[in-house]
Nucleic acid binder design. Structure first.
Lengths: 324, 324
DNA sequence: ATAAATTGTGGAACGCGTTTCAGGTCAAGA
DNA sequence: TCTTGACCTGAAACGCGTTCCACAATTTAT
């Protein structure tokens, strides 16, 4: 396969002239431009993009770090990212890490090695200090509500949203409230647990450790929660659930086991996934796709201004349905 | 930021020696290896991955072409691809094309330009002839059941699966059957429409053109179908639906409008998404994640053997629930 | 003792495209 | 008429890492 030097040789021009034609630069005569284009076509020439990236020092590629694609929040977020990226001719390199820190570090190493121009962390297991090490290697955008001023971020106020859910359940007369979260380990998860503990204390309610359930990501996890619920000595009367899929699993299994929603068990969740409308679930609408769009915009702003570190916070909204 | 020449100069060795150390090659003395590693650490050196890709002539990156992420079949497929890729240290470059042919061509141009080592088409709008033009530029895997022997493919027999759905509805006494598809344009869609038309003719049933509904991808589309159904002069008694989300939307809206499932309207769909269990939908289980895994394996086989063009066909299974 | 193989190292070509700098010609402005 | 700017083109440096080939020393096998 031909390279630029061969094209130049056969067209009888210099490598610079060929490069000018390839890049639509001015100051190339019409005659020379045509003969170069003709030669390119005849040899079916296509330039090596690795060489272009190397010599330009930029790739127009952005890395996306997420734990899993197969989760409605992440697939919505990725959808927003991907659509905005397509509009801006940005290519996406996917890093599905499963929250493995060494995989997240690999993504950061790719940023350091100039394969990608920036990174968007949809969620992360790596510590903030680890991220700080890589701050100078290119724009890093965090899709999280964290107390930090080093990186631009896009998020909703998860703790406030969580409190809204708790307050809504309380306003409906529930005081014995359990929670289901995707994970118990992250900064945000710990904050939610704190918020939950604080609210129960306000209600003078005992905090039951078995009313804080982790590892709830999908529908099947929701079913498992109901098995757990059945065997609780002290049963809650309501659940605040991390996402609609889990809530739907819980409702499906609860009904199968003769419980009545919301009489025996009220359920409020997050996302406003279509399944929540299907199942009549009260939910807090999280604009994940719009978060994704904003993440790409934040990446571009940071690229233009390395000091840019705005925290973009999008609103959320409670949607009341039958499950509470 | 330092480059390999500077590392070599400061370590007092040649560029070759530094490269041997970076790549863990033999034939470097212990003494020289240590001084190179020390210099690398002192200067916080990291090599430019574009240069590595350029000089090696391979990137270990695979492009994934899909119309949208936010569709259960595609997100499941991508999940399978991503997990297998992570296992094999393959990086994924995402091309969310929205079925725009120019976007699909961009992905093929990236293959031709050596940015990626191969391409996996989850679905496509481009013609087969267009793909053939790019055949020699690297492995291309198709996630489709097409009559072709040029590219390896992974698929299920969609037309057989479709016929299974139709036969199931017929076995339950339905003859007035309508269909909902994601698209009406693709090769596979046309084959399904043909299969549908043939089956209705066997039943001596008239084919109503308004019983073939396209553009059904998500839950909202399903709701729209029910509006359409209400206004049909000749109503079908059953629907075979392209995916569970659409079916769920239909069921939700049908019940809201006072119809009874399956008495007034029987619904059978595809995928075996959790929502189908939630809603009690009879569905044909499509192993999308496994298709994804097989797609990466096919890519690797084709890389090793450019003549490899096996058609991998995975099984499907009817799961009977209440909606029929 | 000699030949062959292994070990160790460096120079420079190779992978390929962009950009800078220099030189020449022609046109426009002062 | 002279100066400056625009236009056109090419050589070579630059972006950066891998690999091949050559040479020398040491070890192993005959």
């Amino acid at each position: 396969m031909a390279n630029i030097r061969e094209i130049a040789r056969l067209a009888g021009v210099s490598v610079s002239t060929v490069s000018r034609v390839l890049n639509n630069h001015p100051y190339v005569s019409g005659e020379k431009r045509e003969i170069v284009l003709k030669t390119i076509q005849e040899l079916d020439y296509s330039r090596n993009i690795n060489a272009v990236h190397l010599s330009r020092g930029k790739t127009n590629m952005v890395g996306i770090v997420l734990p899993t694609i197969n989760h409605p929040y992440f697939s919505n977020l990725l959808d927003g990212i991907a659509e905005e990226a397509m509009q801006r001719n940005i290519q996406l390199v996917l890093f599905q890490t499963g929250y493995k820190q060494e995989k997240e570090l690999e993504a950061l190493e790719q940023l350091r090695g100039h394969l990608i121009d920036g990174l968007i962390f949809c969620s992360r297991a790596l510590s903030f200090n680890n991220l700080m090490i890589y701050k100078g290697f290119g724009p890093i955008v965090l899709c999280e509500d964290a107390d930090q001023k080093e990186f631009p971020s896009v998020s909703i106020k998860h703790v406030e949203a969580f409190n809204l859910g708790l307050d809504f359940l309380i306003s409906k007369g529930h005081e014995r409230i359990a929670i289901c979260l995707g994970r118990l380990e992250g900064t945000n998860s710990r904050k939610r647990q704190e918020a939950y503990t604080n609210k129960l204390e306000m209600l003078r309610q005992e905090v039951h450790s078995d009313w804080i359930i982790g590892d709830c990501l999908m529908f099947e996890d929701g079913k498992r929660v109901i098995h757990h619920f059945e065997n609780m000595p002290n049963k809650p009367s309501a659940f605040l659930v991390g996402n609609d899929q889990v809530a739907a699993g819980m409702i499906t299994e609860a009904i199968n086991r003769g419980f009545s929603i919301p009489d025996d068990l009220a359920i409020c969740s997050f996302d406003n996934h279509p399944v929540s409308e299907m199942m009549g679930i009260s939910t807090i609408d999280i604009p994940a796709k719009q978060l994704g769009t904003s993440a790409i915009q934040a990446f571009l702003k940071r690229t233009a201004d390395p000091g840019y570190a705005e925290k973009i916070v999008l609103p959320f909204e409670l949607i009341v349905r039958k499950s509470v």
